[in-house]
């Protein structure tokens, strides 16, 4: 979470004006790293959406008779491309379905952080004064508690479960987005077009929504992409600590990885496959986020 915040700090506050989007997308397409990231994320999203169509088995279908003596699952084979897990369930199928959960958790938690952060940040940035101080001090307080511990605290409060995890990871993201938005809005507030709009008597709310926010949004997009990456990692971390979904058969990557921690030596592929799935999807979001930042950052232009 702090990483995301740092990344945010790197994002330049000046947003590209109107026509820059075109230029930015052009730059993005020419960035091989961003393309690689795009491909990874695309695979991830396709796997998530079409899991029921692609998957050769059902994610909860057990077949204990496949296990070798001592309950050790056999490795990959033609019937099971990535092997089976400790209950004889097809790992490939579960990885596909796991993508759904990761995507869902990532999107929802980022949406929570973004929406609340957006509202608080733009209010703070635009109104200023005592409101700003109060909001931003609250954000400071939230940032004072290390991210994962904060998430753990929230899960302890709400109980373990899928929705609770989404909320926990989302809440942790709020101050990061709020700070980012406030900074952007502050920078935009003094811009010529805002001053112009104000001088002709456009209402404050209208200025905020139609002039300031659209121009402050590009760092938010970058940050949102990077936050997806950290959300997936944080969820895996919570799963590893035993705070994953209540129903143990849920094919969530972090939980899958935790499960097989004990089997690393007996059946290493079981631990490595969900691990690789996590790393690749997170890497995909990070690469895109990085590419977007470079594309949108005027300071880096021309380098």
């Amino acid at each position: 979470m702090s990483v995301a915040e740092l990344e945010a700090a790197e994002i330049a506050l000046e947003a590209p004006a109107g026509g820059l989007w075109k230029e930015a997308s052009y730059r993005l397409i020419r960035n091989p790293a961003a393309i690689a990231g795009g491909v990874l994320v695309l695979i991830f999203v396709i796997a998530a959406i079409f899991a029921p169509l692609i998957a050769p088995y059902k994610p909860l279908e057990q077949n204990l008779s496949l296990l070798k003596s001592g309950g050790i699952p056999p490795g990959p084979s033609l019937h099971h491309l990535l092997g089976v897990d400790l209950l004889g369930r097809d790992v490939f199928t579960r990885i596909l379905y796991g993508a759904r959960f990761s995507l869902l958790i990532g999107v929802v938690s980022v949406a929570i952080g973004l929406t609340v952060g957006l509202i608080l940040g733009s209010i703070a940035g635009y109104i200023g004064g005592i409101v700003e101080s109060v909001i931003m001090r609250c954000m400071d307080v939230m940032l004072a508690i290390p991210g994962l511990l904060f998430a753990i605290g929230i899960v302890a409060m709400l109980g373990p479960g899928l929705y609770q995890i989404m909320i926990a990871v989302g809440v942790v993201n709020i101050p990061i987005f709020a700070r980012l938005l406030r900074g952007s809005v502050l920078a935009q507030r003094e811009n010529d077009f805002v001053l112009a709009a104000r001088s002709v008597g456009v209402r404050r709310r209208v200025i905020l929504f139609s002039h300031i926010l659209p121009n402050a949004i590009s760092p938010v997009i970058v940050q949102g992409t990077l936050a997806m990456a950290t959300a997936i990692i944080d969820v895996a971390g919570l799963g590893f600590l035993g705070l994953g979904p209540q129903d143990p058969s849920t094919p969530e990557w972090g939980t899958m990885l935790t499960d097989v921690n004990d089997y690393l030596q007996a059946a290493p592929f079981l631990a490595i496959i969900p691990g690789i799935a996590i790393v690749l999807s997170v890497l995909g979001f990070n690469l895109i986020g990085d590419g977007l930042r470079e594309a949108l950052d005027p300071k880096l232009r021309g380098r």
Partner: peptide, 30 residues
């Protein structure tokens, strides 16, 4: 800047951020 070493360092650092640390820890220890 812009050369192979730079690219490798950038990709390496992104990979570093992308690996869950408990996963890295388990692998290192093993």
């Amino acid at each position: 800047h812009g050369r192979l070493f730079d690219q490798l360092t950038l990709v390496g650092s992104l990979l570093g951020i992308s690996i869950p640390i408990f996963f890295l820890a388990i692998i290192l220890k093993y």
